[in-house]
Each structure stands twice: as C-alpha cells, then as structure tokens.
Design a protein around this nucleic acid. Structure first.
Lengths: 228, 228
DNA sequence: GTTTCTATGTTTAGATG
DNA sequence: GCATCTAAACATAGAAA
C-alpha cells in the first residue's frame, strides 16, 4: 500500500473504500492475467463487491465454471472409481454408464462451446483461449454454425445478395469445411465494402438495433475485445 | 513486472517460470487478502498450478464453496453484466482523448453489428438485411472478428491447431478483408482438426458440471442455450 | 462521480549465497 | 531447490482537475 504503510484494516470512509476497492480490483485482475499468462497456469476469481450489482468473475464466466467443475469433480471421480472397483455387480453396467457419461459430456461440451462462441461474437474476439477451451471443438461448432448459415442463406440469395463466411484449415477434415471454398467462389456477388469508418450520415440510423439501452454491452467481459 | 518491462508472454524456461509462478502466486494471494480486508468484500480464487499436486484455493475451501454456490444461483442470461471489463485497466494507454468521440461512435456501430451477427448465427440465417443494416459494414465486422480470432488463435497453434475463417466479397475494399486471404495463406500450418468426439481422457471430465446431489449447484446455472 | 497526476511504498526478475 | 538482496518497474493513496 503506497502512502498507507501497511495499515491493513477495513477502510471506514465510504468514499475512500469505494475508490480503493475499484483500483485494487483492477490491479488484482491484472495480476491474475499476468500470472496465468506468464506461467501458463489456470486460475479464476470471483469477487463480490457490494458496489456492483453483480458479482465479478475472472477471466470469464464459462472459464470459471470450467475450473469450478474441475475442482468439484476431483473427489467425486475418485469416489466413483473406488465404488466401481469394489462393487462388482455394477461392473456389467460399466460400459453403458460410460457411454452415458460420454454423451452427457459431449452435450455439455457442445453447450459450453456454443455459449462461448456466442460470447466471442458478442464481444468480437476469442476470449482467453489459452488453456481454457478446446479450440478444435470450438472450430467444429463454428463450422457447423457456418454451414447452417450458408444453407439457410442460400435460399435468399436472390433477394438479399450473398454473404459467405468460411472456415478452413490446411487439411480440412470434413466435407463442410471443404465446401466452403466452393461456395465462396460460387457466391461471388456484386457487393462492395464501403468505408464504414467515414462520417457518412446515411447509415447511422440503420445501424441501430432496437435494444434501447446499450449499456449492457459497454460493460462487456474480460479479456478485452481489443477493438482496433 | 520488474526488470521485464511489460513483456507479457509465456515464460518458456521451466525454471524461471516455476520461480515466477511461486512468487506471483504468493503476491496474488496477498493482494486478495488486502482487497478483501481493506474493502470488506468477499472474494475467492482457484489456482491450478501443475507444479502443485492439488489446486490451490483462497481463502479456504469452504469459503470458496460458499461463494461458488452464491454465483451459481444467478441466472445465466445476466452473464454479460458481471464480466470484467478489460478496458478498466488497459485503457490507460496513449492518446485516448484524441479520437474519443470517433472511437465511441465506431464502437457502438461495431457492437450493434456484432450483436446482429450473433443473432444471425443464432437464428441460422442473415436476417432481412434490406433496410435494416449496412451489409458492407457487417462484412467488415465479420472480417474484424475473424482477424481477431486468427490473431489469438495463432498464439496457440502448437497446442490446438490452426484454423482460418474468412469472409469475402468480389471486390474487397479494405485492408482487413484483403488480409484475410494473406493470413489464410500464412497460417497454413501443420495442424489438423482433431476428432473432438473421440474418447480422449484429458478433456471430457472438465466439461462435466458435477454438481450432482449438491443442491446448491444444481439450482440452475447452466440452462440450455437452445441453439438450432 | 470520474480521470489524471505524483510522491512514495511495493513488487519482482535476476543475481548471489 | 530455497532464502536474501537489489535495481528497476509497478501500484497506489491522496490530491487536484
């Protein structure tokens, strides 16, 4: 504590406490970011600040959920293993249970990825992919979504023009990804990008989405969308 | 980072990383203690350090459990509200006031577009683009998003493989769109998508939300996002 | 209420026992 | 590996804008 020389007691003054809290929360989050980035470890934090309407989590809600799950799962899994080893009559159901578990896991993973994808799109970037999400699966989900978009969009080409979004790797493993390029060729339309950043006045009104107060979106989540 | 001047990247050297990790974990915990004490708020942290056999929790396991329960009781749709805002500690950078107005305007426009883009993905088609949105700008946003994805993704190629997502029109007018193809070329790596649905044992468990019989955790934080 | 500034205390990467 | 030391960078309480 600068200028306070180690006085580690509750700050009675409301204003001072609030200010300090805000500053220190920011610093703490920065420190967590540094720790996880520099050392490549996983960490999360939950902070309940009465000054905020909602608890603050770091680095993101899905990641916190994942780490919490990881924490909660540890003792349970050992317990299960123990039980399976000792209750022989359960062993005949083992394969069945495993399949079930796998299905549930896949479903959870899918939901997590879809939620994550939503958040990425909402914020505009991939959020803290280091050590947090299965990027391969995320890409699978994105490709699936893109495929849906393309399929549905193709029914409206004549009305609205065409937009193509494509995902690729060096060696696309599935048909969907491969077809992306074909569609990209086929759908080359007559559209041009305008300079969106100019001060043109003919677009602002159309840009507004009728969601009223946009403040929800200004308090996004962490890490930053890093808009250029 | 003393003597390291803001180089916020993974420390490759094992010994250095381990030492830094230990020091910084201690500092982080100290900071959390100061924050909670000085400001009288509740907070907890979970840290997974591969160097440690057990995950480290702060301030204590029961307290972490209690705060997690508190968090889990919140409705999912309000996630956005309690995410940290990266800008709170990163935006202290240079020439901020210079083009603040323009940035805010662009930001609003971009957020509207991103939200719109999400809605498109969520619904599965481009929604009534005529008379509602600037399609050209939508493409720009998509490209920006893609660019961000690529940039972030490129930092993890070795771990997860490479994917390039691209959007194009017949005549891309800006650098971003043009660069998409360059990056597509540049990022052609040696990676392949893995079969995400395989029985790999290193990820499935983390996806499970093992709240099971604990009513605190089963009280609803993971409702299905109802995707198509 | 917020942001900016700054003097001063704290953290920390690297070096050394 | 673990403690101690140190210069450099950082964090921050208080004040001012």
């Amino acid at each position: 504590m600068a200028k306070n020389k180690g006085e580690l007691t509750y700050i009675e003054d409301d204003s001072k406490r609030k200010t300090t809290c805000k500053k220190r929360k920011a610093s703490l989050v920065k420190k967590m970011n540094e720790l996880t980035t520099l050392c490549g470890i996983e960490a999360c934090a939950i902070i309940y600040d009465p000054n905020e309407s909602q608890p603050e989590v770091w680095p993101s809600h899905p990641e916190v959920q994942r780490l919490i799950s990881k924490l909660m799962e540890m003792p349970e899994m050992e317990q299960k293993k123990y039980m399976f080893n000792h209750e022989s009559f359960l062993s005949k159901n083992l394969n069945k249970a495993r399949d079930q578990l796998k299905r549930v896991r896949d479903e959870n993973k899918r939901m997590e990825m879809e939620l994550f994808m939503f958040q990425c799109l909402n914020v505009g970037c991939i959020i803290n992919t280091s050590n947090t999400v299965d990027t391969n699966y995320l890409l699978f989900v994105i490709n699936q979504t893109i495929k849906d978009i393309q399929w549905k969009e193709s029914r409206h080409q004549r009305q609205h023009g065409t937009v193509v979004v494509a995902a690729s790797t060096e060696e696309p493993l599935n048909e969907e990804v491969a077809n992306v390029h074909e569609m990209e060729q086929a759908n080359m339309g007559a559209m041009q990008l305008q300079d969106w950043s100019s001060d043109s006045t003919n677009d602002g009104g159309n840009m507004m989405l009728p969601f009223g107060d946009n403040s929800n979106f200004s308090s996004g989540f962490w890490p930053s969308p890093s808009f250029p």
